[in-house]
C-alpha cells in the first residue's frame, strides 16, 4: 500500500513524468491549431489517433508488429545464444579472450550498418538482411557484458564459499551466476535497442513488411501522419520491451544489499 501511495504522489516521478508526456503532446496539438507548424508535414496528435484506428483496423499495424516482431525475436535470440557462449568462453579461457578481444572491440565501435549493403548481397533483400543486421548490432553488448559480469564476481565471496568446502558447481550456481546476472541482463537491455535499430534499418531498404517498411513507404508518399502512427507504435513497443528487461534486471539484482 505504501508503495502505491509513493508511486501516485503528486510530485513523484510517475505522475510528473506522465504530465510531461501529456504536456508535450498538448504542445504539439496547440502548435498545429495555431498554425505554427504545418500538419501536412508534421501531423498532429488528433490526426495520429484517428489514423491509428484506420491502420489498426486495416491490419497493417498488426502485420507489421508480427513481421518486425519475428525478425526482432530471431535476431535477439541469436545474439543471446552466440553472445552468452562467446562471453563465457572469453571468461573461461584467457587465450580465447586475447584471441577475440580486438575483433569484439572493433565490431562494437565501428558502425556495423556499413555492412548492410554486403548483407543484402549475401542474404538477399528484406527479412534475412534485417535479421543479420540486428544480430551483428545486438551480439556485441551481450558478449562484452557477459564477460564483464562474470569477471566482476567478488573474489572474497568465491574464496569464502570455497574455504567452506563448496564445490566448483556450487560456487558457480550460487556465487558467480547471481553475481553476474544483473550485468548480463543490462547487456541484453543495450542489445534490445541496437537490435531494434538493425531491424528497422534493415526493413527501411527493400523489405516489403515490418515497421521499417511502413515508415519508409509512407515517408516516400509524404503521409506524415501514417509515418507518425508507425513510429509511435514502435516507440510503445520499444518501451514495453525495454521496461520488461529492466524489471527482470532489477529482479536479478534483488539480492544486493542497499547501501
Amino acid at each position: 500500500m505504501a508503495r502505491v501511495v509513493k508511486v501516485l504522489r503528486l510530485d513523484g516521478p510517475f505522475v510528473l513524468g506522465t504530465l510531461g508526456l501529456i504536456g508535450i503532446v498538448a504542445l504539439w496539438q496547440v502548435l498545429v491549431w495555431t498554425g505554427a507548424i504545418n500538419p501536412f508535414i508534421a501531423s498532429s496528435p488528433e490526426r495520429v489517433v484517428r489514423e491509428f484506428g484506420v491502420l489498426w483496423s486495416s491490419g497493417q499495424l498488426t502485420s507489421a508488429l508480427g513481421a518486425s516482431g519475428i525478425e526482432f525475436a530471431v535476431a535477439l535470440g541469436l545474439s543471446l545464444a552466440v553472445g552468452c557462449i562467446a562471453g563465457v568462453a572469453m571468461y573461461a579461457s584467457t587465450a580465447v579472450e586475447f584471441a577475440f578481444d580486438p575483433i569484439v572491440w572493433f565490431v562494437y565501435s565501428a558502425p556495423i550498418v556499413t555492412l548492410y549493403p554486403l548483407l543484402i548481397i549475401w542474404f538477399g533483400l528484406g527479412r534475412p538482411a534485417a535479421i543479420a543486421t540486428g544480430f551483428l548490432l545486438g551480439v556485441v553488448p551481450i558478449v562484452v557484458n557477459t564477460r564483464a559480469g562474470l569477471q566482476s564476481t567478488d573474489r572474497h565471496l568465491l574464496r569464502a564459499v570455497r574455504s567452506f568446502g563448496a564445490s566448483e558447481r556450487f560456487a558457480l550456481l550460487h556465487v558467480v551466476v547471481p553475481h553476474s546476472l544483473p550485468l548480463i541482463v543490462a547487456g541484453v537491455r543495450l542489445a534490445v535497442g541496437r537490435v531494434m535499430i538493425g531491424v528497422v534499418v534493415g526493413e527501411m531498404f527493400g523489405a516489403n513488411q515490418g515497421f521499417g517498411y511502413l515508415i519508409a513507404y509512407y515517408g516516400s508518399v509524404v503521409k506524415a501522419t501514417d509515418v507518425m502512427v508507425a513510429l509511435c507504435t514502435l516507440v510503445v513497443a520499444g518501451i514495453a520491451i525495454t521496461q520488461t528487461v529492466w524489471l527482470f534486471e532489477q529482479w536479478c539484482g534483488r539480492w544486493r544489499v542497499r547501501a
Binding site: 508526456l21 508535414i41 531494434m196 535499430i197 527501411m204 515517408g219 507518425m228 508507425a230 518501451i239
Partner: peptide, 16 residues
C-alpha cells in the same frame, strides 16, 4: 519522454 526517444531508433525519423 526523453527516455522514450532514447529507446526508439531515432533513425526511423529519417523519412520524416
Amino acid at each position: 519522454s526523453l527516455m522514450a526517444f532514447y529507446i526508439t531508433p531515432t533513425i526511423a525519423l529519417l523519412p520524416l
